[in-house]
């Protein structure tokens, strides 16, 4: 049942109640992604604090739950990015490093054909919630994306912001925003194909 705006406002005005009402839900969501209870707790706390700061932006566009979970998703990706950076600094390069340098090339040859044609994904779009591994890898890949691309992509797809709003938030032009989101999609798709389908499948598709 949806809540009426005044009820929602009362909720927003009483942030301590958020913790009782949404704390467990956010915690379970975070735990599913980061696996570590104490990190999940920290992310939940950060989410509430960020929500508190930004609560003027929350104008009942969505439910409080949806709004909080969107903030949490950003926090999860930020956490994964930090972790990925720590691991890759002394180990292997991120698979995006090469792509990030040559960001003009997005996987097509001179005549505009796919270099590595998209493989078949064995994922049922209507049952995505059952595909835990897929979602895990998706979050990992978001963490590996260059930060600005990840931000723009998430603002668009998670927060559902318009291009104008993204441009304002990131201080970029309209065309720039489209290009950044496009590159994010290309790299995410590529990352999922490599990490989720597995290298063997991926190589097979190259032929």
């Amino acid at each position: 049942m949806s809540k009426n705006p005044s009820e929602m406002k009362a909720q927003i005005d009483n942030p301590e109640n958020w913790v009782d009402e949404y704390g467990d839900f956010l915690y379970r969501y975070a735990l599913a992604r980061v696996k570590d209870p104490s990190i999940a707790e920290d992310l939940v706390q950060e989410t509430f604090l960020a929500a508190l700061k930004a609560r003027r932006n929350f104008e009942g566009r969505s439910t409080a739950r949806t709004w909080l979970i969107a903030i949490l998703k950003h926090k999860i990706v930020d956490y994964i990015r930090k972790k990925v950076r720590e691991q890759t600094s002394d180990k292997v390069e991120s698979i995006f490093d090469a792509a990030a340098i040559d960001s003009g090339d997005t996987g097509f040859n001179g005549s505009g054909h796919w270099n590595n044609p998209p493989g078949k994904w064995a994922v049922n779009p209507t049952k995505l919630y059952e595909q835990k591994e897929f979602i895990d890898i998706l979050y990992h890949c978001l963490g590996e994306l260059p930060e600005r691309q990840a931000k723009a992509f998430m603002m668009r797809e998670i927060d559902g912001l318009s291009t104008d709003e993204i441009c304002k938030a990131l201080g970029i032009s309209t065309t720039n925003s489209w290009v950044i989101v496009y590159r994010a999609r290309i790299l995410l798709r590529q990352c999922l194909e490599i990490k989720w389908l597995g290298t063997e499948n991926y190589t097979a598709f190259k032929k």
Binding site: F25, R28, Y29, A32, R65, T66, I69, K73, P117, P118, G119, K120, W121, V123, P125, L128, Y129, E130, K132, F134, I135, L138, L142, M154, E157, I158, G160, R185, L188, R189, L192
Partner: peptide, 20 residues
């Protein structure tokens, strides 16, 4: 075609609110 479908999957997957 696959590419288009996969972009839609990415969109739906990140919008997913919770596990079932």
């Amino acid at each position: 075609n696959r590419f288009r479908k996969q972009l839609m999957i990415l969109r739906h997957a990140v919008r997913l609110e919770a596990l079932s």
